[in-house]
């Protein structure tokens, strides 16, 4: 038994070594960028690396910004495991959040049932947006990668219109909808930071998706379809179903991410509040190699880089966008077979 465990641990470590190398390359890019761009690189680096851990406020905010990334990362992982791409996360989060906000306000008299209904409505809307791309692929083989992106871009604009137009709350200076009632707001975990109990829901989502993918028949069929669609079909799996369903669930999770961002952090749909969350969710899934359990550390890593960049921007002389450069370096290298297998023993051909 113990021997068996060792056999599993060693390759995992070797596999991890490749990812670690990539993380180290990305972090050395932070050092290089600070040396080039900052007049006081030492100070910049100090705030970049330690800033997010220094106070309850920064630490809590970092954890909080990981929450939508966890939801998004799960959503993308689910789609990718079935062999589908969902590039519409931006629109799905934003649209899901708006529907959740509006439904919460209308369903307020129903209490907790209303809150659950609102979350479900928001997530289902986002799911339908992604599921439609799945439907198009199933029906006419239209590339879901492109349609999900196009639909999302159109949705972003329509939501912008709805927030700034019919649902604008004129009583604030923000371009935002009305706020959800206070009784529906999730309680804070680490005040004065933005962290809320939404964190627990994110963890529940990770466990649920893990169980679905690895412990249920439907999850097994989904993964088989992703691994080899023809083989799965030959084995009697309804592969058509696993184009639409994973896309729907993927959008659903993005939508939940948007909904919990409203319940835990923003309390209203603010114009463009979710910009970037969809793409970062995708990045998180890629770093996690579509494994739900690995989504948590990947989301934390991404949130850490952003929090570091934000802290360096506030206290030193660099701009926040260095986060995008560092993240893009991770993106560049994360799928490299050469780097990832650098430390793995050469496998004998089976």
């Amino acid at each position: 038994m113990l021997e068996n465990k060792n056999k599993k641990v060693l390759p995992t470590l070797r596999e991890g070594a490749g990812s670690l190398l990539i993380v180290l390359i990305a972090l050395s890019a932070v050092i290089a960028l600070s040396l080039i761009l900052s007049k006081n690189p030492g100070k910049t680096l100090g705030y970049f690396f330690l800033g997010p851990l220094q106070s309850r406020y920064y630490f809590g905010n970092m954890l909080n910004s990981a929450i939508p990334l966890i939801f998004g990362g799960l959503g993308v992982s689910l789609a990718m495991q079935s062999g589908n791409f969902n590039l519409g996360g931006e629109g799905q989060i934003y649209g899901g959040a708006l529907i959740t906000t509006l439904c919460t306000i209308y369903f307020a008299p129903l209490g907790i049932v209303g809150a659950l209904l609102a979350l479900f409505a928001g997530a289902s809307t986002a799911g339908a947006l992604a599921g439609f791309s799945g439907f198009l692929r199933m029906k006419w083989n239209t590339s879901e990668l492109i349609t999900s992106f196009l639909i999302s871009n159109a949705v972003l604009l329509v939501v912008n219109y709805l927030i700034a137009g019919p649902f604008l709350d004129p009583s604030t200076s923000l371009i935002a909808t009305r706020k959800i009632p206070e009784t529906f707001r999730l309680s804070a975990l680490l005040p004065p930071s933005n962290l809320s109990t939404a964190l627990f829901f994110a963890l529940v989502a990770v466990i649920t998706v893990h169980i679905y993918l690895y412990k249920t028949k439907s999850g097994y069929e989904l993964r088989m379809t992703g691994l080899n669609s023809r083989f799965a079909k030959y084995g009697g799996i309804n592969t058509k179903k696993f184009i639409v369903l994973p896309m729907f669930l993927s959008g659903f999770l993005y939508g939940l991410g948007g909904g919990f961002a409203i319940y835990g952090t923003y309390f209203a749909s603010i114009k463009e509040f979710s910009a970037g969350m969809g793409w970062n969710g995708l990045a998180v899934a890629l770093i996690a190699k579509n494994k739900p359990s690995a989504v948590i550390p990947a989301a934390l890593f991404f949130a850490y880089i952003e929090a570091g960049a934000r802290s360096a921007m506030l206290h030193s002389d660099v701009t926040f966008e260095i986060a995008a450069i560092v993240q893009s370096i991770v993106f560049f290298l994360i799928s490299s077979e050469v780097l990832l297998t650098l430390f793995e023993k050469k496998r004998r051909p089976a």
């Binding site: 960028l33 761009l37 791409f85 990668l145 793409w279 995708l282 990045a283 890629l286 660099v318 701009t319 966008e321 260095i322 986060a323 995008a324 450069i325 993240q327 893009s328 370096i329 993106f331 560049f332 290298l333 994360i334 799928s335 490299s336 077979e337 050469v338 780097l339």
Partner: peptide, 26 residues
Amino acid sequence: VTLNLKSNVFITGLAVNLFASGLTVV
């Protein structure tokens, strides 16, 4: 990166987009 380091062209493509949007602002 795509051809010599054998990376997924889709992901490296996204990396270029993210890199360009960050680099131009920085």
